[in-house]
Design a protein around this nucleic acid. Structure first.
Lengths: 340, 340
DNA sequence: TTGAAAGCGGTACCAC
DNA sequence: GTGGTACCGCTTTCAA
């Protein structure tokens, strides 16, 4: 069934040399070949159903036109649009995407990079970076161009595309203040992730900028960016700060966890307490109450990262660049004027 | 920076022949080589940082250990868990995944298959099949093993993994009937997709089985599986069936669209009208009212599809098999006893 | 403008 | 059990 047609078959059919066919089929070198020959080669290739063998070209050229992407969880609504954006930006310039789910343990995290390196990917996108990440180390050592997206390292040894988390928290806090809130607490994400750590930092500086004190117990760290962890942490946060009038959560899932914690205590949102999320993931406009949140365009982040990586591969970009996207405030029903 | 280590370097270092190294490194052929040699080869490879070149192996072997996946939209919460499941099942047996977003126009749909074939993927997973799909045709012609997932063709020329859509609708309708509903209408999905068409069929047979008539206007077809299209179609559906007490939607997004349509008319769910969705996508348990729906395990579907494809590649499976997964009813707050 | 030939890095067959 | 060798399909340098 599968009598694969090679460049040689096309050459024989036409009575020309394989290298001529190769040249005629490469847009960049077409000009070196006689116009009529090009025409006939293209026609014959088409007619015979010739498909160039990417493996052979990769071997010869030393470039695969393949990009590896590592995400913590493909099904996570934060990461899937990033992949979509990447795919979109990269397909345009002839790259395909190998997607890998991040295994939890550190050892196989490095293994997966080795697998991708073995496949001779031309570059790597990591959506999983910790503040100090040995996966990045590994890529640099291997000489593989790498771009971080969504989360960045503390240092700028690899270029990255992230949302301005400090700015986002500023928007959230200022919105609450404009509604009269003063006793605002923070449901933080894991410190080891740049999103968790930067949003916490942003929260503090926004409070400070507004002349509000951040009490000792006003920030609690959730163990993970999940609803369950958020519910747990929010319950503790409420216990420690019974007079708080507003919660700023480090992401939407945590905010929804806080909804659950509130419901369990019989406190209402937004009447008793206001809540702000972060990310504006799908459907948070339909939960009850509709969630006020900070919108980040994850798809655009992916597109930017794709373009940055291609530039890096082509040697046009110095590592160390950091692209910061502006977030925006989306006001819905989970925040309201406070009475005290 | 990138003085890539080849099998030759390892061989020279040890004073053995490259083919010996190759054998020692291949678990299946290790037994042909002296035990001590194997040991030394492995150590040296490790020490030198040798990574086998997948392109070279692909070229020689004729198999890439690469699988292509085509989805309509990576960010869609139906498809991302499918990809996760595929990845999970395939990584275990050494396959990596090339993910491609489906372009809308039919021509580039075929182009994308050509691209994947050029990359010498060992198999293809299509999550995008229409009832009669020339992409499937193309794969068969090209001799590429292919598995359909989530949506299937009408014929069984390619094996597929799908949810039992007829059974799902049966569950939905029977649930409503048990709550006393009689005037049940259907917010259908696009007929050209197997999900749309089969759920419509399922709806009809479930009604028939219960001895209920399906009136002429009791089914309306939405133009797409989106909230906006669902809202539009639902409004029309309500206009044509003012006395309906329950809507069965062909998926959750359509059901949420129906929420919007109801709200606009000032009718309440579930007091005035009950709604059932389909898929149990993330967060539909947190919308208001929490959505009663039919749960499908998309992740498991992906895993099954991966296993099926591997079997197919290994020649263990005859095409034409269809794996049907059982859905289940998840009762929440959008359905209630009817009063009339 | 085209042809010839080498070789990318493995694998597998055939000898010994 | 190990070495030699050809070759997978394409690209590219060198010659003509």
């Amino acid at each position: 069934m599968n009598a694969v047609v090679t460049i040689k078959d096309v050459a024989n059919e036409l009575g020309v040399h394989p290298s001529t066919v190769s040249r005629a089929l490469d847009p960049a070198k077409r000009s070196l070949v006689g116009k009529d020959v090009v025409q006939r080669v293209i026609e014959t290739a088409e007619r015979l159903g010739y498909t160039p063998d990417a493996a052979a070209a990769t071997l010869r050229r030393g470039r695969s036109k393949l990009i590896g992407v590592i995400v913590p969880d493909i099904a996570n609504p934060v990461f899937s649009p990033i992949i979509g954006g990447l795919e979109n930006a990269l397909a345009e310039v002839g790259y395909a995407l190998i997607v890998a789910d991040q295994p939890s343990d550190a050892k196989s995290r490095l293994d997966i990079i080795e697998t991708l390196v073995a496949r001779r990917v031309d570059g790597l996108v990591l959506a999983t970076a910790a503040l100090r990440d040995d996966a990045v180390e590994r890529c640099i050592r291997r000489g593989v161009p790498v771009v971080l997206v969504n989360r960045a390292e503390e240092s700028d040894r690899a270029p990255s595309v992230v949302s301005d988390d400090v700015e986002g928290m500023m928007l959230a806090v200022q919105h609450l203040i404009s509604l009269g809130h003063q006793r605002i607490v923070h449901l933080a994400g894991p410190k080891a992730l740049s999103t968790g750590s930067l949003r916490r930092k942003g929260f503090k500086s926004a409070m400070k900028a507004a002349g509000l004190a951040v009490k000792r117990h006003a920030i609690i760290e959730s163990t993970a960016f999940t609803r369950a962890a958020g519910a747990l942490a929010a319950a503790e946060l409420l216990k420690r700060n019974p007079d708080a009038t507003a919660i700023v959560a480090a992401n939407d899932l945590l905010a929804l966890g806080a909804y659950e914690a509130l419901a369990r205590e019989g406190r209402r949102c937004p009447e008793d307490i206001s809540i702000v999320g972060h990310n504006d993931m799908p459907l948070v406009d339909m939960v009850s109450p509709a969630l006020t949140t900070i919108r980040i365009s994850h798809r655009e982040m992916g597109e930017e990262a794709g373009r940055l990586l291609v530039a890096l591969i082509n040697g046009q970009e110095t590592s160390g660049s950091r692209i910061v996207m502006r977030p925006s405030l989306i006001v819905r029903q989970s925040t309201a004027q406070t009475l005290n």
